[in-house]
Simulated scan of single mutants.
Amino acid sequence: MKEMDIHPWLIRMSQGDEEAFQIVYQMTRDHAYRFIYYLVPNKQDVEDVMSEVYLELLRSANNYFPGQNFRAWFNGLIIRQVRNWKRKGWRRFRIWDRLKRVSSAESDRAAIEQFAALEDQLELLPIVSALPLHLKEVIVLRYYQDHSLEEIALLLQIPIGTVKSRHHRALKRLRHQYQDKESAKGANEYVY
C-alpha cells in the first residue's frame, strides 16, 4: 500500500468513480483483512467488519488530506469500525443479560425469545422480509442499523408515537411468525 499511488484514486473515489473504489479496495484489502482479523475476537465477523470499513471509507474519503499518512489514517478508520462492531455486540449482550435476569413471567420469556430471534439474523431475514414495508423499515433501522426510536422518527419523518406503534406491531408479528416457524420445525422433528 504505497501512499503516493493511492492518493489520486482516493480523490477519484470521493467523486463517485467506481473503478477508483475497486482499485483502492485492491490496494488495501489484504492489509485491512489482516488488521481486522487480529482485532476482532470472533473470526466469523471479519468479513462483516470489512464491509463496514469500506462503507465508511466511501463516506469519509473526503476527510483524507494529501499531507496525512494514509496508512495511519486508514488504520484509524479500521479501529473505529472494529470498536463500533464490538460496541454493537456488547450492547446486544447487555440487553440479553438484562432480559435473562429480569425474566420470571411468561411475557418476559417471550421478550427473551424475541430478542434471541432478532439476534439470529439469518433465520429471521425471511420473516422480516415478509413484513409490510412500513413495519420492515422500523425493524431494519432499529435492529440492523442500531438507530434509536427517536432517530427513526427523524429519518422516516413521522411522529415518535407512530414509530413506537409500528415497532410494537412489528415485534408482535415477528414473535408470532417466529413461534409458528419454531413449532412447525418441532413438529417436523417427530415425523418418521
Rank of each mutant, 00 (worst) to 15 (best):
M4R: 15
H7M: 04
L10C: 15
L10V: 06
M13P: 00
G16Q: 05
G16S: 10
E18V: 13
E19P: 02
E19W: 00
Q22M: 10
I23Y: 01
I23C: 06
M27K: 14
R29M: 15
A32R: 10
Y33Q: 04
Y33D: 03
I36P: 06
I36H: 05
Y37F: 02
Y37V: 00
K43S: 14
V46S: 00
E47G: 05
E52K: 10
V53S: 09
V53M: 12
L55Q: 15
L55T: 12
L57Y: 07
L57P: 10
R59C: 12
N62L: 02
Y64N: 10
G67W: 10
G67A: 11
F70H: 00
A72G: 09
W73S: 00
N75I: 07
N75E: 09
I78H: 05
R80L: 14
Q81G: 12
R83Q: 11
N84Q: 15
W85D: 01
R87Y: 14
K88M: 04
G89H: 13
W90C: 02
R92Y: 09
R94D: 05
W96A: 02
R98F: 08
L99P: 06
L99N: 05
K100F: 13
K100N: 11
R101A: 13
E106R: 14
E106K: 14
R109W: 13
I112E: 01
I112V: 05
Q114W: 01
F115M: 03
D120H: 15
Q121D: 07
L122H: 12
E123K: 10
E123I: 04
L125P: 00
L125G: 01
I127V: 10
S129K: 08
L131A: 02
P132S: 15
L133N: 03
L133S: 02
H134N: 11
L135Y: 03
R142N: 11
R142K: 05
D146H: 14
H147R: 13
S148T: 09
L149D: 02
E150T: 14
E151R: 03
I152M: 09
L154K: 08
L156V: 04
Q157G: 11
P159S: 09
I160K: 01
G161I: 03
T162H: 02
V163Y: 07
R173S: 11
H176L: 03
H176T: 11
Q177A: 13
Y178V: 14
Y178E: 15
E182R: 06
A184G: 04
K185A: 11
G186F: 09
N188A: 13
N188L: 13
Y190V: 12
V191T: 05
Y192L: 01
